[in-house]
Design a protein around this nucleic acid. Structure first.
Lengths: 341, 341
DNA sequence: CGGTATCAAGGTAGCGCTATCCTAATGACT
DNA sequence: AGTCATTAGGATAGCGCTACCTTGATACCG
């Protein structure tokens, strides 16, 4: 056996040239045929596809990205995967983008602006075709990176009206106000707002809640319990207890996320605090457990599947260069009234 | 202003050549310096790093991947993101691999072997440096793809002893047996196994549970309630009810996942079925809600953070070509006894 | 019927990196 | 002092694909 020339660095896989040779066309024609460029004769294209199948050809994404200065990748940045909300949204995004031929790169910023900036910087090096980010709160540098990259971008969860800004979300403030009005409608007047994590959307919900109370002249700032700690069921239980200790007259609580509310309901059950008898409870998001709690949790359902789907569809349209009639999609929310109020 | 030559396709970003020029070295030296190849003079390397920082240079991953026929990417395939188990594992994997300079590509197979095979096929085109997959159950084609790719691979969740096979997991069968023995130790004899999803690990747990019962001569196949439907709290409640209807004498249940168990506990509470008075309940995984249920759920804790971390560390070692002493890491599990038994 | 518009297909030349070889300089050793 | 091994750094040549331009063939026009 002769030693092979040391010069070649070929990987051994079938390349586009192999396919072209097999189909007896030029490489560039093979390229066009496989990409579905429509200036290729139908019969030639068919021959190319057959050849590709025969050889088990899989395009080299690195070569493609290098030559075309773009990649069939969409980067999605979420602040958390622990919160099921974002998992649901991601799932829907995948379901749209994968069949459309895009690869989805997930970045988790852990609710940290610096980390998000770093992720953006790294992921932009891949020259993704599109970008989906959560909300609008980011470092100035991150904002600039996105802007100057000229990469089609869709913002999730929140709404904004600005030229060239695409977003799919809901009015967090309006959702907070709805929770307040629902409790008021139940005849409750000593209403508390309990929140953790304190991301921008949390604060917006708090703002809406507060405004609705001010309108009814029953806002008491002492009944706002905010902590930057991560949201959890354990925390929900603790916050309920400390709130009722300090303010025994509270008769309604809006928990900023269902896990807090669920933890609170279970703690109340354990301590024999009647819900909604003594205190009514409203959650947020309608996560899986909400409907199963004892009592079942009244909450505000966010359409996460729809949000992900619409965001992906919007991004697809923008990436295709279509003119979008509605750059800001309001997916709304729904108050789900159950036994806890 | 002269019209620029149409020929260049440069992207406008700083390239390695720009950095090299700025640092007054050759491009290849710049490349070596930035990659940390140690044959570069310390002072030169420093000059290159400075130049890179000045120019805001970010390497083009596509070019790097094309030239080197590998990428700093690790692909992780999980069967689900809805189950918090995998989110926890992923989180830990990220925490190790990201600082090590790897990008993590997540693939979600939705418990579908065909989909997993497709994912593997697509992701292998990226020539990842490493691969982390869940379990051992996959199509023959998928198995071959992994094998022939020669890419360092670590298997999650389960254990296996075979040369060249790396895995980090626990004995699912042993965990199932532990649940059985715990219930037996509480004096229960009519023990049911309730499972959904029916993935391989579920079945292994069932197998271990069954064997332990057979040993004690109290195995009754009628008390196995299996459904391929996805696991959920709602399903857990339903299965509890139908099980107790058909077999009122059941005095202990091992639910294959905590969400089933939690749904069951809440349904029992609602219907006034005493737990553990009439029936003791054991869950699996120790998910967030377990400790907060009423009664608090006895369950088997799986060390998910550790599993992800160890898998990532093992993969790093294999990718670096180190010889690994322990190719199969047993992270074990822990019975967490609470009020439900 | 000559000339131009149109279009499919191909030739050429990179995209931005790194593997491989090569050279010159340094030191070790006979 | 001369030979050899050992380095540091550079020159060269791709990796596999696609953008751009060109070519040749066909359609279209007055």
């Amino acid at each position: 056996m002769k030693t092979t020339e040391r010069k070649t660095r070929a990987t051994g896989r079938a390349t586009l040239s192999d396919v072209a040779r097999e189909a007896q066309v030029s490489p560039i024609t093979a390229s066009r045929a496989l990409r579905g460029v429509d200036t290729v004769d139908a019969e030639l294209a068919e021959r190319v596809r057959t050849a590709a199948a025969v050889l088990g050809y899989v395009p080299n994404p690195a070569a493609r990205a290098l030559a075309s200065a773009r990649s069939d990748t969409v980067v999605v940045l979420v602040p958390s995967l622990t919160n099921a909300v974002f998992v649901d949204v991601l799932e829907a995004i995948y379901r749209i983008l994968q069949p459309a031929g895009y690869e989805v790169l997930i970045g988790n910023s852990h609710y940290d602006r610096e980390e998000e900036e770093r992720l953006i910087r790294n992921y932009l090096a891949h020259r993704p075709s599109g970008l989906i980010v959560t909300g609008f709160d980011r470092t100035e540098a991150a904002r600039r990176l996105i802007e100057t990259s000229r990469i089609p971008t869709v913002h999730l969860m929140e709404l904004a009206q600005a030229p060239g800004v695409y977003c799919v979300g809901l009015s967090q403030a309006e959702a907070g106000a709805t929770a307040a009005r629902h409790l008021l409608g139940r005849g409750r007047r000593r209403l508390a707002f309990v929140a953790a994590q304190l991301d921008p959307r949390t604060l917006q919900r708090g703002e809406g809640f507060r405004r609705a109370l001010i309108e009814e002249a029953c806002y008491d700032p002492a009944l706002e319990l905010l902590t930057p700690a991560p949201s959890s069921m354990a925390l929900g239980g603790e916050l309920l207890v400390s709130l009722l200790e300090r303010h025994p007259d509270v008769d309604g609580i809006f928990f900023n996320n269902d896990d807090l509310a669920q933890g609170a309901l279970l703690e109340a059950l354990r301590r024999g605090i009647p819900v909604p008898g003594r205190v009514a409870v409203v959650g947020f998001n309608d996560l899986e457990g909400a409907a199963h709690m004892v009592p079942r949790l009244t909450t505000i359902r966010t359409p996460r599947e729809e949000m992900g789907r619409r965001a992906a569809e919007l991004l697809l349209a923008v990436m295709r260069g279509e003119t979008v009639k509605v750059p800001a999609v309001d997916v709304g929310f729904e108050l789900v009234t159950r036994e806890s109020t």
